[in-house]
């Protein structure tokens, strides 16, 4: 039964329905207003509803059109490391300062690839730290401490 469906279309449609429902429901918390004085909730409510309807349409369009190819499995290691690096960067840039954050972030994101050895990642991290510091902090005069307050500077 399910084999007849395109799983991709169902999932995509599901995401759109969920997102549309979220925006529309959340918009109800804001003043909707009248067409003359549209409140902050007017457009999100309208567009959220449209998105949810489109989502249903997307899911329905997958009926009897099963996916032809099986997608490659995602690289969980890559996802965790790359997203982890981005969150880490945001969480520590003010506290740790530019140099340590860039070094750690470069090393960790290099490790996201199975082809990189820790040694290569380390060398790459050193190189990128020097390069980024030279371009952004020295060259463009970005206002960020080299070493942040958490390190006792």
């Amino acid at each position: 039964m399910l084999a007849k469906f395109s799983l991709r279309d169902i999932l995509a449609g599901g995401i759109f329905v969920l997102a549309g429902a979220y925006f529309a429901l959340e918009a109800l918390n804001y003043e909707v207003g009248t067409p003359f004085r549209m409140g902050p909730g007017f457009m999100p409510l309208l567009l959220g509803t449209v998105l949810a309807l489109l989502g249903i349409g997307v899911a329905a369009s997958g009926w009897e059109k099963p996916d032809r190819e099986k997608p490659l499995p995602p690289s969980w290691r890559g996802i965790v490391l790359i997203v982890g690096v981005i969150v880490f960067f945001g969480a520590t840039i003010r506290g740790l300062g530019f140099v340590p954050v860039v070094f750690i972030a470069a090393f960790a994101s290099a490790m996201a690839s199975r082809l990189n050895s820790p040694l290569f990642a380390g060398l790459l991290a050193v190189g990128l730290t020097v390069l980024c510091t030279a371009i952004f902090v020295i060259g463009l005069g970005m206002t960020v401490p080299w070493f942040g307050p958490w390190l006792g500077q």
């Binding site: 690096v85 860039v102 470069a106 994101s109 991290a125 390069l131 980024c132 970005m142």
Partner: peptide, 23 residues
């Protein structure tokens, strides 16, 4: 590519941060 993508991730983070210093 395995050397290029960490640089892309870094540049993206630094660049975005430099616009408004907004984490």
């Amino acid at each position: 590519y395995r050397a290029l993508f960490p640089a892309i991730v870094l540049f993206a983070c630094i660049g975005c941060y430099s616009i408004n210093q907004n984490v």
